[in-house]
Design a protein around this nucleic acid. Sequence first.
RNA 1: GGGCCGGUAGCUCAGCAGGUCAGAGCAGGGGACUCAUAAUCCCUGGGUCGCGGGUUCGAGUCCCGCCCGGCCUACCA
Length: 606
Amino acid sequence: MSSKRHILTAVAWPYANGPRHIGHVSGFGVPSDVFARYQRMSGNNVLMVSGTDEHGTPVLVLADQEGVSARELADRYNRMIAEDLVALGLSYDLFTRTSTGNHYAVVQELFTGLYENDYIFARTTKGAVSPSTGRTLPDRYVEGICPICGYDGARGDQCDNCGNQLDPIDLIEPKSKINGETPEFVDTEHFMLDLPAFAQVLGKYLDSKSGQWRPNVLKFSVNLLNDLQPRAISRDLDWGVPIPLEGWSDEANKRLYVWFDAVIGYLSASIEWAKRTGDPEAWRAWWQSEDAESFYFMGKDNIVFHAEIWPAMLLGYSGRGDRGGTPGALGALNIPTEVVSSEFLTMEGRKFSSSRRVAIYVRDFLERYSADALRYYIVAAGPETQDTDFTWSEFVRRNNDELVAAWGNLVNRSISMAAKNLGAIPEAGELTGEDRRVLADSRAAFDTVGEHLNRSRFKAALQEAMRTVAEANKYISDQAPWALKKTDPKRMETVLHVALQLVSDAKTLLTPFLPASCNKVYAMLGGTGVWSGMPRLEEAVDSIGGEEGSSVYPVITGDYAGNEARWESTPIRPGTPLSRPEPLFAKLDPSVADEELARLEEKAGE
RNA sequence: GGGCCGGUAGCUCAGCAGGUCAGAGCAGGGGACUCAUAAUCCCUGGGUCGCGGGUUCGAGUCCCGCCCGGCCUACCA
């Protein structure tokens, strides 16, 4: 085996304008955690980072509506989201936020590096401004009559009726979507990221990923290269990271645009993590070592930021764009090894929509059902390579038939039988051919499941892992150890030994997907250490937003380095005492599906 | 308008680079067993692979057109 690899697990940053629903965590949350846990079990050095994305107009608009400051709103949802992600068991090394002083400093450093390498330039454009607030209105917040088709209700960026791209200044009778007033159009100067200056290097980069990335991500990204345009990276806003240039930094109403700062979060969070560990340089092993790898997890709407813009930013900062340059103060930085994008989850046939209340929030879900049940459903039936539909009846079915009946019952029946009859893990006597075969198959699954996980094929990986569960159930049924109790007790002990070894292996194979319940199985079989560590919420201190003083905010972190979980078959130890187990999972009454559906309809009808 | 993705058995979905590709799980039907949260195990599936053309000895699998759905096109994953 090769030596330990450094693997950055970069998880998309949830936007802090509300609670996150199960579609969000299907896209970035659960897949990234499965991946990270597997890589740790394989002995690799994983750094898993993310945080809340808090800048930008949507937060500002919502804060205005509620009569609170943007920071107060961000504080509220930052905490709520962090709590939800911990409850789901997502094993971040650091989950932070974009409003920290550290983040501001790193963002400004990247801007400066790009600017000095000549990949950023200023340009004057016309922008819509709200007369009453003096605030710039983003294109999407201006509505009016489409100049092409006459549709009343076209947005400033696009007409939903005829599909044409628009400029807000062309709209007839433009109105602010926020308060209905007529915007003024004024000249405003903005910085642009010169994406065309990366066409060559990005082309080579994407070519080199052929056959590795999911085809949809790659095709999409390659196609983007055909039409690279400079992209604005600043906005007329007072909520965001200030522009670190003379004449701009003290400009109250000019900030870096939210997507520019959000992707830099991967780097700033890595640096923040290193500072917190007491070794401020530790982040470099994941960002600058030539053989370090980075995997980015997100939903399909974010591909452009991760496969095009973020690599361009990193290359430009490192002096590796088409115009060359020199690395900034942090040094040259690695670009993504792989961009893993999920598709979308629909909800009972409808698109998730917070505004229309078509949503199942993570928090509500976990109040009534276990994290592992949700994680199982998301991996087994989630939108890995295409949109999939969440239905409550399918959730109940998967929970009852697969988690409870197949896996939970396997654990229960085998440990119960051994505990009741022997009180401990029995020795194996002489093994039959069938015993050897089933044990060998179980060991072989580590390679097949691991290969799937390495390639981010989570659904296939889980299916293979569950196949070993079915094999174990079949083995027990075929061998019928309960019938051997009187006829051949020694043979019964051997069969139970084999069965428990199969349970132990399956528990290991399922750990990336179902960490909480697998930790329980580990303990049932006599394990005493920490099997696969769970994240925890800590209160952290940082100068928020680069301001004077400090502020306390929650971060997710955890201790995973010393975990017992290894990606291999671990021999069970005969003689280990066993007691009658508690059921691993709760079976759900079929009426749950109807109740939840009614609840959803009720909310949508409000 | 442009781009990307999807439309496969009642349901949810696999089918990577053309020739056991017409599949899996669940539901439904029959049987076995009783250790286990009545769980498990065995047997049982023939669906115009969205529609219409085309290229091939041969196409869910490649090409063209069309229909439907999702996403992106300065940011709800």
